[in-house]
Computed example of a mutant assay.
Amino acid sequence: MGIESLLVMLFVGAVAGWLAGKLVAGYGYGLLGNIVIGILGAVVASFLLPQIGFGLGGGILSAIIHSTIGAVILLFVIRLIKRA
């Protein structure tokens, strides 16, 4: 993995985590938290979205949307677990 790929992954994770935090009850997690949430969201989305037949294509915008969807799902599940 080159330095460019790592920087893009960190950028996409940060943006996706920030967007997911705004969409799910407006929580703020800081830069590092947003990156972690965004990257984990991308992992969740890469597993779940193909199962339901949802694909976006390539590019950085689709990666951000893909990761944000996964991060929202992740935050929703975490919120359900905290309430239980």
Rank of each mutant, 00 (worst) to 15 (best):
58 G>E: 15
64 I>K: 02
80 L>Q: 13
72 V>Q: 03
15 V>P: 06
62 S>C: 10
64 I>F: 01
16 A>M: 02
49 L>F: 06
14 A>C: 08
69 I>N: 01
79 R>Y: 12
58 G>C: 01
52 I>F: 14
47 F>K: 13
67 S>N: 04
7 L>N: 01
80 L>H: 12
62 S>H: 11
61 L>Q: 08
32 L>N: 11
73 I>R: 06
77 V>Y: 14
23 L>W: 02
34 N>Q: 08
74 L>Q: 02
28 G>V: 08
6 L>Q: 07
43 V>G: 12
12 V>F: 01
45 A>P: 10
35 I>E: 00
55 G>Q: 14
61 L>G: 11
58 G>V: 08
77 V>K: 05
32 L>M: 14
37 I>M: 01
2 G>C: 00
19 L>Q: 01
33 G>Q: 03
62 S>D: 05
41 G>H: 09
82 K>Q: 14
12 V>T: 09
54 F>I: 13
48 L>A: 13
63 A>Q: 05
25 A>Q: 09
11 F>T: 13
46 S>E: 11
27 Y>G: 12
3 I>L: 13
80 L>V: 10
1 M>Y: 13
69 I>Y: 02
59 G>H: 03
44 V>F: 12
33 G>W: 03
28 G>L: 08
81 I>A: 09
11 F>P: 04
72 V>H: 07
54 F>W: 15
72 V>C: 09
4 E>N: 12
66 H>F: 07
5 S>C: 00
57 G>M: 10
55 G>D: 13
6 L>R: 10
36 V>H: 09
61 L>Y: 07
32 L>S: 11
68 T>Q: 03
79 R>E: 14
40 L>M: 15
53 G>S: 04
26 G>L: 04
83 R>L: 15
74 L>E: 13
80 L>I: 14
62 S>W: 15
73 I>F: 08
22 K>I: 12
73 I>A: 14
14 A>N: 02
43 V>Q: 13
50 P>Y: 05
1 M>V: 09
81 I>K: 10
81 I>V: 15
42 A>R: 09
26 G>P: 01
66 H>S: 09
5 S>A: 15
46 S>M: 05
22 K>T: 07
23 L>P: 01
74 L>V: 08
17 G>F: 04
84 A>F: 14
50 P>W: 04
84 A>W: 11
42 A>Y: 13
14 A>K: 01
33 G>P: 04
82 K>L: 14
61 L>K: 07
78 I>D: 06
69 I>L: 11
33 G>I: 06
63 A>L: 06
73 I>K: 14
74 L>H: 07
37 I>D: 04
15 V>L: 11
36 V>L: 12
83 R>A: 14
52 I>V: 15
73 I>D: 02
21 G>D: 02
49 L>G: 01
8 V>F: 13
26 G>C: 06
8 V>D: 07
21 G>K: 03
16 A>E: 03
59 G>A: 01
83 R>C: 00
71 A>H: 03
13 G>W: 08
11 F>K: 02
20 A>F: 07
20 A>M: 00
34 N>W: 00
16 A>T: 09
69 I>M: 12
40 L>K: 03
37 I>P: 05
52 I>T: 14
53 G>W: 05
17 G>I: 01
70 G>M: 04
22 K>E: 15
29 Y>S: 05
1 M>R: 13
18 W>F: 15
41 G>A: 08
